[in-house]
Computed example of a mutant assay.
Amino acid sequence: MKRLLLLCSLVLLFNCKEEQKSLVKITAKTIKVDSTLSGDQNIEEVIAPFREKMVASINTVISYTPKDLVRTDGKLESSLGNLMADLSIERANPLFHKLTEKNIDFAMFNYGGIRAGIPAGEITNKHAFELMPFENSLVVVELTSDKIKELVTYLVENNKAHPLSKQVKLTVKNESSNLLVNDKPIDNSKTYFVLTSDYLQSGGDKMNFFKNPVNLYKLDYKVRDAIIDYFKSKDTLVSNLDGRFKKL
């Protein structure tokens, strides 16, 4: 009897032993995806109404511009960059004021964040999505005067047309620079409220001066939504180069 039990135990032990598996061969199959593939009619019937609605929405005319708006028509500022910064602060400041009873001092974004220009003529939702395809949101950072000076150093050294709002007047001559915010020089005893995107606030595009602010205010308002809301509020868009950032 004992021998029988021992034999049964050995059989169970070997049967329960995990089988070792190894890769023997890998096979692959190429499936060509092109116009020769036919769609599923049932799926097409479900999708069609949503597609038609989306196409109609994206092509809806929301404003007009008499001239091309681009990021390349100036060296240190641009018509499109000026417009983007100005419209963002116009749309965001009421939200910030309601939240804090304070006002935004100025806005700054990055040159690379402008992904497409807007050609002269009717403006649609499509133009807004092409201009800002990212899901970036607007935030306000409270910065010390030292951080503002770092911001100025970045602008001077970077030498690009980063979008700045009209509250800023930055003049560079030889090795010195002069910054005015709302026509006043920087006050070392003050902090400043600067509007930007959450991407840049986290140090995107090496804008590290936005990191670790005195306070950070999230407005829960996407940059693209601000652009669309502004466009819808204006029959005609107007934006010019006004010397808000220049080298003498």
Rank of each mutant, 00 (worst) to 15 (best):
D235I: 11
L95Y: 14
Y154W: 08
A85G: 04
K169L: 08
M1N: 06
L83G: 10
K160D: 00
I62R: 10
R224I: 01
F134L: 13
L23P: 06
K166M: 06
L155E: 08
D40E: 04
V172P: 09
A28P: 03
I148P: 01
V181M: 07
Y154E: 00
D105W: 00
L164Y: 03
R71E: 12
F210K: 02
T153S: 13
T30P: 01
N59R: 09
E142C: 13
E90W: 08
I58M: 03
D205G: 03
L170E: 05
P163K: 07
A56D: 11
E45K: 15
G204Q: 05
T30I: 10
D105S: 02
S239N: 11
V61G: 05
C16R: 06
E44C: 03
T144I: 11
S63L: 07
T144Q: 01
K21P: 05
V55F: 10
D235Y: 15
D34P: 02
V46G: 00
A48N: 13
A120Q: 11
N136D: 04
I118D: 01
K247S: 15
T171M: 11
K211F: 00
V194W: 00
L5P: 02
K21C: 15
T72N: 10
C8E: 03
D220I: 11
L95N: 14
S197M: 03
G74S: 06
N136R: 04
K234T: 08
S35I: 08
D34E: 06
L241P: 07
L219V: 11
D187M: 13
T65Q: 09
P163L: 09
K29N: 14
K149V: 07
S239W: 01
L99N: 12
V141N: 10
V33L: 14
V181N: 02
N42H: 11
L164H: 05
A48G: 03
R224A: 03
L164P: 03
M207D: 06
N208L: 12
I148Y: 00
L6M: 12
K166H: 05
S22L: 15
F109G: 09
L216Q: 14
S137I: 10
H127G: 06
D220F: 08
G74H: 01
V61M: 03
K29H: 14
